[in-house]
């Protein structure tokens, strides 16, 4: 599904990615973990084509991506900061994205699920952060894309929405989709992820299942296990 080879990226003098080699197969939930500044978002944005790599190649569904755009029809993205043009109403934003992508979408059940009906006619600038994140989620999940990329999907969500979110992600997986997400919330990751990718200082320190991680580090607790990798060698 996604194949990344020898990916390098630096911003000015700051080397963010230093030779990342990784592949994500079809059908699975992958969590990209790592401390702040480890290059998670840069990796995600490279896949999206928002960040242009200095070196290396990224192939999504057989397309080598720099300067391509059609492959994004197969992909939905949930950005980290949910900020939209303030003058638009929620319903307008949804129909705008549908219009822009020119794809079929199924937003009504998502709107229902996140209880957004009463906000549909509100302008986006009047919404709270949590509500905006819900709108953000609707936009990301309403298309039937084989690849989902979620950057911090849990931020600002109330518990019931969080439960809905987990349910949706699992459903998507059951439909054979690939989900790529980044998060700082270990319980969430533990609960949902099939595989974990641990990124530190622009390199991949670990890729594998949660059980493999625990086994490797000898820690029963995910958080401790994560903390443990950072201090040891690469386990790829």
């Amino acid at each position: 599904m996604i194949k990344i080879e020898n990916l390098h990226k630096k911003f000015g003098k700051n080397k963010v990615l230093e030779g990342v080699d990784i592949h994500f197969d079809r059908g699975g939930i992958y969590a990209i973990l790592g401390p702040n500044g480890s290059g998670k978002t840069t990796l995600i944005k490279s896949i999206l084509g928002m960040v242009l790599p200095d070196k290396g190649s990224i192939t999504v569904n057989g397309t080598t991506i720099p300067r391509q755009w059609t492959y994004r029809q197969q992909l939905s993205y949930l950005p980290q900061i949910a900020n939209f043009p303030g003058n638009l109403r929620v319903s307008e934003l949804i129909s705008m994205i549908k219009d822009l992508r020119g794809q079929e979408a199924n937003e009504s059940h998502l709107v229902q699920l996140f209880e957004l009906e009463k906000y549909l006619d509100k302008r986006l600038s009047t919404l709270s952060g949590g509500t905006k994140q819900k709108v953000n989620l609707v936009l990301a999940f309403m298309f039937d894309s084989p690849l989902l990329i979620l950057d911090e999907p849990t931020s600002g969500l109330d518990p019931s929405s969080l439960i809905s979110l987990k349910r949706i992600i699992r459903t998507e997986k059951e439909m054979g989709k690939t989900v790529l997400l980044s998060s700082h919330i270990m319980h969430f990751v533990e609960e949902i992820a099939d595989e974990i990718v641990y990124l530190l200082e622009g390199k991949i320190y670990f890729k594998g299942s949660l059980d493999a991680l625990k086994e490797l580090t000898g820690e029963g607790n995910v958080e401790h296990a994560i903390a443990a990798i950072a201090t040891t060698q690469t386990y790829v």
Binding site: M50, W69, T70, R72, Q73, L75, P79, F84, L100, I149
Partner: peptide
Amino acid sequence: ELLLAQPIR
């Protein structure tokens, strides 16, 4: 950024 993630040039 929202637009950049969409299939648009």
